[in-house]
Simulated assay, not measured.
Amino acid sequence: MRRRRFVAGAIGALSGIGLGPAPVRADEATPRAQGWQAVPAPGSTPAAQLRRIAAAGSQLAWAVGEEGRAGSSQGRGLAMLWNGGAWTRTDLSHLDHTRLSDVAGVCSTAAWSVGRPAGSGSPLLRWDGTTWRETTFPGRGEPDVRLDAVAVGHDGRVWICGSRGGAARLLHWDGQRWQWLDPLPVASANLYRVVLRSPGEVWVSGDQSNGGGWSGLVARWDGAWTVLPPIAGLRLGIADLHSAGPDDVWAVGTEAGVGGPPGRPGNPALSHWDGTAWTRVEAGFTVGSLSGIAGDAQGRAAWIAGWNYQDQSRSTYLRRHGDTWTVVRGPAGTAPAPYLNDVTWIPGTAGFWSAGMTSPAPAPPTEAYTERIEA
Score class of each variant (00 low, 15 high):
234 L>K: 12
241 L>M: 13
98 T>F: 08
336 P>Q: 03
372 R>V: 15
354 S>C: 15
158 V>I: 11
49 Q>P: 02
291 S>C: 10
16 G>C: 09
248 D>T: 00
65 G>W: 10
333 G>D: 11
269 A>R: 11
52 R>D: 12
345 W>G: 01
64 V>I: 12
180 W>L: 05
36 W>Q: 00
182 D>E: 13
131 T>I: 01
55 A>M: 05
106 V>Y: 07
156 G>A: 13
230 P>W: 07
147 L>M: 05
94 H>I: 06
38 A>G: 07
8 A>N: 08
73 S>Q: 13
161 C>K: 03
336 P>W: 06
262 P>F: 04
286 T>A: 14
170 L>F: 13
52 R>W: 05
212 G>N: 08
39 V>Q: 06
299 G>V: 01
364 P>Y: 09
21 P>Q: 05
66 E>I: 13
372 R>C: 12
46 P>L: 06
226 T>F: 09
332 A>S: 08
146 R>N: 04
189 A>K: 06
287 V>L: 15
30 T>H: 13
79 A>T: 03
362 P>I: 03
314 R>G: 01
132 W>A: 00
133 R>N: 15
166 G>C: 07
334 T>R: 15
31 P>G: 01
247 D>S: 15
70 A>M: 09
252 V>N: 09
27 D>G: 01
352 F>V: 04
289 S>A: 15
359 S>D: 04
310 Q>F: 00
29 A>P: 10
287 V>T: 15
64 V>C: 12
191 L>Y: 06
171 L>N: 03
43 G>L: 06
245 G>A: 06
163 S>K: 08
140 R>Y: 05
365 P>D: 08
110 A>M: 14
217 L>C: 02
66 E>T: 10
339 Y>H: 07
373 I>Q: 02
316 T>D: 03
288 G>D: 06
239 A>C: 02
146 R>D: 08
45 T>Y: 04
301 A>T: 00
73 S>C: 01
367 E>T: 14
262 P>E: 03
339 Y>T: 03
368 A>D: 09
223 G>S: 06
143 P>V: 03
348 G>H: 03
276 T>W: 03
280 R>H: 14
213 G>R: 02
367 E>L: 11
304 I>C: 02
225 W>Y: 14
225 W>A: 09
42 P>T: 15
55 A>P: 13
147 L>Y: 05
288 G>V: 10
310 Q>N: 11
138 P>N: 12
108 S>P: 12
353 W>L: 06
170 L>W: 11
370 T>W: 10
302 A>G: 00
34 Q>K: 00
184 L>W: 12
219 A>M: 10
314 R>H: 05
63 A>H: 09
126 R>E: 08
22 A>S: 15
156 G>D: 08
44 S>W: 08
277 A>P: 03
7 V>P: 09
322 G>Q: 10
190 N>D: 15
307 W>C: 10
258 V>S: 01
71 G>T: 01
266 G>N: 04
261 P>T: 00
176 Q>N: 14
241 L>A: 11
197 R>G: 11
351 G>Y: 11
17 I>S: 14
6 F>R: 12
156 G>V: 09
247 D>I: 10
278 W>K: 07
13 A>W: 04
147 L>D: 03
266 G>H: 04
135 T>P: 00
165 G>D: 04
366 T>L: 07
66 E>P: 05
81 L>D: 06
332 A>P: 02
271 S>V: 11
148 D>N: 11
